[in-house]
Design a protein around this nucleic acid. Structure first.
Lengths: 199, 199
DNA sequence: ACTTGCATACATGCAGCCTGTATGTTAATT
DNA sequence: AATTAACATACAGGCTGCATGTATGCAAGT
């Protein structure tokens, strides 16, 4: 019995172990939570050693950072794939929200992006990641709506975007946790149409 | 130099050390965060030993639980003191929200109740604490509004309450973090009046 | 083509800290 | 005086981050 050693290039080797670590991390962080997952258990699941882990990532939080980043990117991709860029503001928000809800239904994703992420990395860094991946879609949309006179005068777009963001997140989390999707979509829609008055 | 030993009753002694521990915990958890505060540091600040800590609390999270509970109770008390029970739903929510924002301005309170609490104890337990202290004011208010036909037909009160709760929390956190209070109050009001249509 | 030197990608071992518990001690209550 | 509550002290286990050791791919020179 000889274990085969398929001579891999450094780049391949590197990519494979990094992927193995991130897969194991995603799985365990979702299953048991970040704090309850130790690095010994993590590397065992990934079939590498702790040395490899600390070679690829600066510390334990850095793995979560990488996982979160990938997950956030996936959400942004899913949404932009299902979103029509030239859509009128009244419906555009609701379509975007639904796409967001759908993307967040991917198992474990809501847990990672809405719970573990903010907990470990903090709200500021999560906002920064959102900016890098999602490019501040919400604020753009609101500014567009404001330009068309569909927002009440004198309202702060930043504050409104912040509140709506919290709203969407909570809805996504509830839906992903098995709550009645229809109820949350309806409630979200009601709140949205309440601020966005037609031209 | 003789250190005085003021013969205290067991009840006094117990209350004093417990208070010292909770004060130290509140201070350090706010200053450095829960995870970054070790029990050795905590007991040093409280001038007791780790033995006392584990005599009064089952584990580290149990101290945070006690602090959170007290803080949540304080919020509930402040709000109910400034709230008129027999107020019409259109304004009642906004007055309640403002009272909530004000109560949450107490230094460290937002950090404890909206960040550390959910992180460490989880959303479910936080909801349970809210139920015990705040007695589900929001849902009551919404049901009252619905009974007077001030809510859109077919909307889920539970879902709406959940979303509004997330909204208020985010606003409170932003305000407590130094954001422009007026902007958030206005945005909150706009969203609220959007769902609550007058009779 | 082959070796020589080097950098990359890990593996292993160690030091420090932290949590929870078990056991010991003092002081109040009965 | 006996008992029990309220601590204090000591210990075991685990986990993180780093420091050091090793092997493998790679690139250059000859």
């Amino acid at each position: 019995m000889q274990v085969e050693k398929p001579r891999r290039s450094q780049a391949e080797r590197r990519a494979e172990t990094k992927a193995a670590l991130m897969n194991a991390a995603r799985s365990l962080f979702v299953q048991k939570g970040y704090a309850e997952t130790g690095t010994p258990e993590l590397v065992k699941e990934a079939n590498v050693t702790r040395g490899a882990l600390y070679h690829h990532f600066s510390d334990k939080a850095d793995i979560l950072r990488a996982v979160i980043h990938a997950e956030s990117q996936a959400v942004a991709d899913e949404i932009s794939a299902k979103t029509d860029p030239g859509q009128a503001p009244p419906d555009a928000f609701m379509h975007g929200a639904k796409a967001y809800f759908t993307a967040m239904k991917t198992p474990g994703r809501a847990h990672l992006l809405l719970l573990e992420g903010p907990n470990v990395l903090g709200l500021e860094e999560m906002a920064e990641i959102d900016r890098q991946t999602g490019q501040g879609t919400l604020i753009d949309g609101l500014q567009h709506a404001a330009a068309h006179g569909q927002l009440p005068a004198g309202i702060s777009i930043d504050a409104l975007a912040d509140l709506l963001s919290a709203l969407f997140d909570r809805a996504a989390l509830a839906i992903a946790s098995g709550a009645d999707e229809g109820a949350y979509v309806t409630a979200t829609q009601t709140l949205l149409t309440g601020v966005l008055k037609p031209t």
